[in-house]
Computed example of a mutant assay.
Amino acid sequence: MLLLSAVPIVAGSMRLAELSGGARITPENARFFAVPVPVIVHIVAASFYCVLGAFQFAPGLRRRRLGLHRVSGRALVPLGLAAAFSGLWMTVFYPSPPGDGELLFVFRLVFGSAMVAAIVLGTAAVLRRDIRRHRAWMIRGYAIGMGAGTQVFTHLPWAAAFGAPGEFTHALLMAAGWVINLAVAEWVIGRQIARPSALSGFSHG
């Protein structure tokens, strides 16, 4: 998960350097220069969410450092919500860049809203001490948040074989990244339901 996180973190760092270094404004980046706060919030929040979140799923850390797990969880909720809401804001209010379209607009709204819902439901579950549902919803929220990393790998084979995708194909390849992550998340959740002892000692408090 840390390796997968590296892809959007590097890309985000390059975007931040571009904004702070006075890079040349182009049609592709003009929206970020015009209103930079949402993209800065998105990059910073998503980067910490991806890296910190990866350690939440380490069973050894939960058993040996439960206090750290709880503190990290309390930080991850606002980070995840900031990443999701800033992404939704950019989807709705930023002008669409070249190559995007209405289908991708809908996909971003759907998956961004699903990430918010997963984090809220996961938080509500742990407050009820429903650890099984808490873990399941947090895994789903994290899977959606990691979509940017997987989307690189859904695009690369297509670009290598057929060149740059068109608007419709680009939207499907973006959606594939989220769907693949959610499919893996459901597989992990299913395995843990089959092994109830795997949840022993898991709680944010």
Rank of each mutant, 00 (worst) to 15 (best):
F168L: 13
M1R: 11
W178S: 09
R15H: 12
P59N: 05
A114H: 04
A118P: 00
G53N: 04
L79G: 01
D100I: 00
I139C: 02
A118W: 00
S47T: 08
F55C: 04
R31P: 02
G122M: 04
G177H: 07
V126Q: 09
S20F: 15
V179W: 09
M146P: 06
I9F: 11
L109C: 08
P196I: 04
I40N: 03
R63I: 13
L172Q: 14
L52I: 14
S113G: 14
M115F: 08
G141L: 04
R132Q: 13
G205S: 09
R64W: 08
Q192R: 14
G73N: 03
R70A: 13
L172I: 13
L16I: 12
G177I: 06
I144Y: 01
L156V: 15
G205Y: 11
A45Y: 01
H134G: 04
A125D: 04
A143M: 07
A23Y: 02
R195D: 15
Q192F: 06
F111V: 03
M146V: 10
P98F: 12
L52D: 03
A194S: 10
S113H: 05
G190D: 02
V10R: 09
D130V: 02
F93V: 10
A171H: 07
C50F: 10
I25Q: 09
A161M: 14
A160E: 09
L79D: 01
H204D: 09
G190F: 07
G149F: 06
P36S: 05
A6K: 08
V120R: 05
H155V: 11
V152M: 12
A148Q: 09
I144V: 11
A164T: 15
G87L: 02
F107P: 01
I139M: 13
R191P: 01
A148D: 08
G149D: 03
R191Q: 13
A183F: 12
V39Y: 00
Q151I: 11
A183C: 12
V35C: 04
Y49N: 06
I139G: 00
R62T: 05
H170D: 14
A17H: 11
P97D: 06
A45P: 02
V71H: 06
S200I: 14
T123P: 00
L172V: 14
T26W: 05
H69R: 08
Q192G: 09
R70S: 14
F107Y: 15
A198K: 08
P95H: 04
T26E: 11
F85L: 15
G166N: 14
G21R: 07
T169S: 11
R24D: 10
R128M: 06
V92K: 09
V39R: 03
L121C: 10
T150D: 05
E28R: 13
G163L: 02
T91C: 08
T169Q: 12
F105H: 13
